[in-house]
């Protein structure tokens, strides 16, 4: 399953400063945002864990959107990722 991952508002600095990337997820399993966050933590995160996550979710102040829709409308961690989804992480915590 191909998906696009993008970062904004400073969240990119936690992920090697790469703003946008294409990913291929293993088709054998069902992916939720919960399991995807674990995947990101294990494979993509380059900065300190506590700057990105709190418990099994993202740190408060980091917004998550799927195809430009607030994940709060999609079941948050339980959302099941679909092929061609664009998942965005935008930090509100950086200076303005």
């Amino acid at each position: 399953m191909d998906i696009t991952l993008d970062f904004g508002g400073g969240a990119e600095v936690l992920f090697n400063n790469i703003k946008k990337r294409e990913l291929k997820l293993d088709d054998g399993t069902k992916w939720t945002l919960r399991s995807f966050l674990q995947y990101m933590k294990d494979n993509l995160l380059t900065d300190r864990l506590e700057l990105f996550m709190q418990g099994e979710s993202v740190r408060p102040g980091i917004l998550v959107l799927v195809n430009d829709t607030d994940w709060e409308l999609l079941g948050e961690l339980d959302y099941e990722i679909q092929p061609k989804d664009t998942i965005s992480f935008i930090s509100t915590l950086h200076g303005g």
């Binding site: 600095v13 430009d68 930090s91 509100t92 200076g95 303005g96």
Partner: peptide, 21 residues
């Protein structure tokens, strides 16, 4: 709210700078 400011900038595709001092 800060969340709405960030959402507004995102949806309007406004370019801003975001690095801590």
């Amino acid at each position: 709210y800060e969340k709405e400011i960030v959402m507004y900038a995102h949806f309007k595709k406004l370019v801003y700078f975001s690095t801590e001092c």
